[in-house]
Write a protein that binds this DNA or RNA. Sequence first.
DNA 1: CGAAGTGTTGAAGGGTTTCAAGCATAGTGG
DNA 2: CCACTATGCTTGAAACCCTTCAACACTTCG
Lengths: 253, 253
Amino acid sequence: MRTTTALRLIDAQPKKAWTVRLTAAGLDGADLATMDMLGEQPRHVAARQSLVREGDPAETVYVLLDGWAARVKSFADGRRQSTALLLPGDVCNLDALYVGCHDYTVLALTACRVAAVSRQQLGSLAASSPNVAVALGWFACVENAIATEWLACIGRRSARQHLAHLLCELQLRMDAVGLAEADGFLLPLTQEEMADAMGLTAVHVNRTVQSLRGEGLIKLDAHHLRILDWPGLQRVAGFHPGYLHLDGIRPLA
Amino acid sequence: MRTTTALRLIDAQPKKAWTVRLTAAGLDGADLATMDMLGEQPRHVAARQSLVREGDPAETVYVLLDGWAARVKSFADGRRQSTALLLPGDVCNLDALYVGCHDYTVLALTACRVAAVSRQQLGSLAASSPNVAVALGWFACVENAIATEWLACIGRRSARQHLAHLLCELQLRMDAVGLAEADGFLLPLTQEEMADAMGLTAVHVNRTVQSLRGEGLIKLDAHHLRILDWPGLQRVAGFHPGYLHLDGIRPLA
DNA sequence: CGAAGTGTTGAAGGGTTTCAAGCATAGTGG
DNA sequence: CCACTATGCTTGAAACCCTTCAACACTTCG
């Protein structure tokens, strides 16, 4: 089923999500066209495969075009912590531009389609077009805002609040790239993958899902999430969408 | 005492830490000189004062020249989570370049000296010099790496491991800007501030400090940290310094 | 001297984990 | 078509890490 739903996503519009994100980053005209054309011949990655691995030399920047992925940090004893959930339009490993090797693994959670861009190509593009360089800074900034909000979630929110917050965030991020309905979206994560993202155990995620379900806030069945009470879910989460910066980059001028 | 130790820091070399960081970001020659000159007439900020506040319009980028600060997210019920500890040489709010208003507060933990740079000034500098734009991307990337390692700390490490990890990180970051001795440094944080950074309570931080002390790993007294067993502390923490990217930016060429 | 901030300690409580088992579903191969 | 297996979801009970609440010692400062 995991595979089935993912395959459906893959046949969606070619790069719509990526175009949306580039526009939000302030690009238009020639810059937008150039960035949009990067990485012709998209690569397909099967679910459960890793796109880059912790310790790998960083040579290629990947843009997620379809499917879900996660950045994961693994411990020697098998514990794992996801540090980001990647949706269509997200850059999987922007730091490949700046560092020698990655300190995380990018794991495909569903079958994915990605655009692969060499760091030289993207780097010289950024060096020649200030708008592109600024757009890359914007992407890094938004990633940072999400990561730090996650810090607040893991550090100071209860499991209930945290799960509600995560669902609110994903609803808005999916909506921003045209992949959400008004009251829900296809959530391909297993409860174990949600647990890795929230710093909890799968067992406790299960109980927490049931808690939100029991209060009539959400319906989550066969990976289809329906938000039954959007204001209520936001209230439980203490969710304020500002950190997502959905209104796009602020012009420098 | 808090004030006393901070004042001592303030009279150190003018901008050494900032210069070190700019060099690590790959700047030299005219670019380095220009960035180093930014924000003449440094501003002084008293301990406990906030440099920028959650919700403030973002007009100025601040570079920390001396003292310690933290980015903090506050909840309605008084809980707080620090999302970053800022040391001399760190940029306090790089996202002021890209977004309209901040989603965090920057709080001076000691008396601080900062360079204030208008976003127009820094923005036009970045637009005119690709090297500067890349350097800003580098800063964002390192911040991201630290924030995501913190996610792993809060999410999957025990309090003991987490505290040990934080101390290892701070030792190396302080050392990178010439502010650490071989076996320790001046740690001006209260246990409550450490708790905010680690997503714990002050009471439990206290017990955790004593645990590390009891095993002969550290000595922490009157804000002076001495690391008695560096390999041991790293082992307890599961600390691998790669994520700090202390070797500096990787050349794009 | 009193007040405020910080570090410390004890006891009780709770949120989450751990361990274990059972159930449902999808895919596989005979 | 039916075992058979693998994966994911669900539930229960016990244990544990951390929190909460409370009190006290110590220092600094007005």
